[in-house]
Every structure is written in structure tokens, then in C-alpha cells.
Write a protein that binds this DNA or RNA. Structure first.
Lengths: 120, 120
DNA sequence: GGGATAGTTAGGCACATGCCTAAGCATGTG
DNA sequence: CACATGCTTAGGCATGTGCCTAACTATCCC
């Protein structure tokens, strides 16, 4: 069982696992992009793709299981919506990484400055 | 062959595929977090994980193929460094999504405002 | 030069993934 | 009521993934 080496529980968060996994496929990323423009039905979402409907629906299932989208069925039509919280979680994780390497660069900068001062 | 539905080529970018895939695993995310604190050798990186070394090295290969890390061998020691550009690409993709759903919410806001004005 | 250290390569296994077709179900329409 | 539409479920297949052990190679050190 791996032990935590980073900050917080985010890095081992199963939710981040599934969100990154969901976004690792171009079809699913394009679905997320489309839903950013507003809700859409299964047929609407599937239309641009040259893929069998059951294959495409599997991608929607992956997105829903990861929490990136939610769906609601009315009659025979299922409508999907983007759920932004998982994307915000990815954003938070990235911000923590950026702060980390930026801090390191700042420290390197300060070190170089000190070395230059000593050489005067 | 899926046709583009989103903006730009980013969503179908194979590089984004592999970056998101690399980050979909908790072990690899922890490696990225550790490298944010500075370069480290294979042994350094592997130490916190209860995993056979060849298994762990495969994770490093996935990270390197995705471009998230680079490595350099000196003697028998291989040192890894974080390469931040792929994380910036993820950040860019997220920013585009956020702008998209924020724009949609702004439009919805404006619409509601207009409807309320009409009811006066 | 032999042993230790750091890492690599090869092959295997169980399971996951991403596509397919076929068949079926629920709802809507003329 | 028969047909159309929207979607679901089931099963299959080829490939990929994430772990393992065993054996090996390259480098370092006493």
C-alpha cells in the first residue's frame, strides 16, 4: 500500500483517479467540451461521432461514474449536463503543483542571487 | 473517425490523452507531486512505494512517454525531473472549459434579467 | 576482481478498456 | 395498433494495463 508522500489526501483520491481517466480519452473530452455549451441528449452528443451507439453510451457511463456529468431521463430521452466540481478538483490539484514548483524556482532564484552577491 | 466538435485541436491532442492517462494513476500522481519539490533518482522516487522496482519503473516510463518527466543517466543512477509544459497544457484546457461554462452562465443570467424586466 | 548497488529487460497473469453486433425495452406518433 | 425513435443490455474480441518474479547489465567500491 503506497504511503502518502504529497500534501493532503488529494493525490490518492480515487475521485481524481477516475476524473483523469475519464479525460484521458479524446471522445470523452469532446463530450465534456460540448456540454460546456449546455445540456444535450444522448443523440445530440453521439451525432458527431462515427461510432456505434452502445460504444458511445459506454463513454457517457464512464463520464457519469467519474462525476463529470449527470443525466436525467424524461420519457425515452436522456439529457446530460456538465458537473463542474470534478474539473475544479483537477484545477485545485494543478494549482498545488504549480505552487510547489514555483516555490522551488523562487528558492533557486534566491540562492543564485546570494551566490552572485558573495562573488562581488 | 470522430469529427472535431470543440475548439481547436487540443481536445483531440494525443498529448493530452497521454498526460491525462499518466495522471489517472495515484502512484504516478504522487511521483509528479514529489518531483515538484526537485529532481530525484529512481531509488528516491521508489522508496515510499510498496512495489517491485520493475513495476515502479514502468510508471516512470509512462510518465516519461507522456512528457511529464525527463530523465538523465549518470553512471548507474538515473535522475528524473518534472517537465511542467504538459501540466500547463492541462491547465490551458481547463481554462477553456471554465471560460465556456462561465460564458453560458453569464448568458443565462442576462436572459433571466431580461425576462424579469419584461414582467415589470 | 569480486561483491554491492542501481536499474533494465523479459515473460507471465488477471483484469480493464474500447470497440463491435444483435437483440431487446420504453416511449412517442400517425 | 404498428411502426419509429431513443436508448439499454448482453456477449464477444483484440489490445492495453498494472502488477509479479527471474534474470541480466552497467557501474561503483573495498
Amino acid at each position: 500500500m503506497p504511503k502518502h508522500v504529497g500534501e493532503g489526501s488529494g493525490s490518492t483520491d480515487a475521485a481524481l483517479d477516475s476524473v483523469f481517466h475519464a479525460l484521458s480519452d479524446p471522445t470523452r473530452r469532446q463530450v465534456v467540451e460540448r456540454l460546456g455549451q449546455g445540456p444535450a441528449t444522448t443523440s445530440d452528443l453521439a451525432r458527431p461521432f462515427d461510432m456505434a451507439l452502445p460504444s458511445f453510451t459506454q463513454h457517457l457511463h464512464v463520464l457519469e461514474r467519474s462525476g463529470l456529468v449527470t443525466s436525467e431521463k424524461k420519457g425515452r430521452v436522456r439529457t446530460y449536463r456538465l458537473a463542474t466540481q470534478p474539473l475544479e478538483r483537477v484545477d485545485t490539484w494543478l494549482a498545488v503543483q504549480r505552487a510547489r514548483w514555483t516555490r522551488r524556482l523562487d528558492q533557486l532564484d534566491a540562492l543564485l542571487y546570494d551566490l552572485k552577491e558573495q562573488q562581488r
